[in-house]
């Protein structure tokens, strides 16, 4: 095997090894700051902080539990409310007031707030 081929193979092997690690790092990397998120959480607690609380309009169902939810999912949901892809009136109003950074911080706060919880 000539050195050039060997070098190419090494580069390919290194890329293959690095790709999953990079993907993992990206997934585990916290974008938001939960301490900052805790400062904005008052606007969420009125509905998400009361066990058994239900929505009032336009359809009645339980307000979802969000403690321990993946931060990436919470953040995406907030963006979708802000840009109108999701339509719950209260959540659209709340999300409209949040910056991208606020969303990341709140998502980080709620993702870790249920840490260690195993009860239903």
């Amino acid at each position: 095997m000539n050195p050039k081929t060997l070098r190419t193979l090494v580069v390919i092997a290194a890329s293959c090894a690095a790709a999953p690690i990079a993907a993992l790092a990206q997934q585990a990397e916290p974008a938001g700051n939960p301490v900052e998120g805790a400062r904005k959480v008052q606007m969420c607690q009125g509905c998400h902080g009361i066990p058994g609380w239900r929505t009032a309009f336009p359809e009645v169902y339980s307000v979802p539990k969000i403690a321990g939810q993946h931060a990436a999912y919470i953040e995406k949901a907030l963006h979708e409310y802000k840009n109108g892809e999701r339509s719950h009136p209260s959540m659209r109003a709340i999300a409209a007031s949040l910056s991208d950074k606020d969303m990341a911080n709140l998502a980080a706060y709620y993702a870790q707030s249920g840490l260690g919880a195993t009860v239903q």
Binding site: Y61, S62, P64, K65, Q69, H70, A71, Y73, K76
Partner: peptide
């Protein structure tokens, strides 16, 4: 779920999941 893009469903309110 292991992937953060997909929400955890375990223990979520049933009526919310159904909605």
């Amino acid at each position: 779920s292991a992937n953060a893009d997909y929400p955890r469903l375990a223990g979520q309110h049933r009526d919310y999941l159904a909605k």
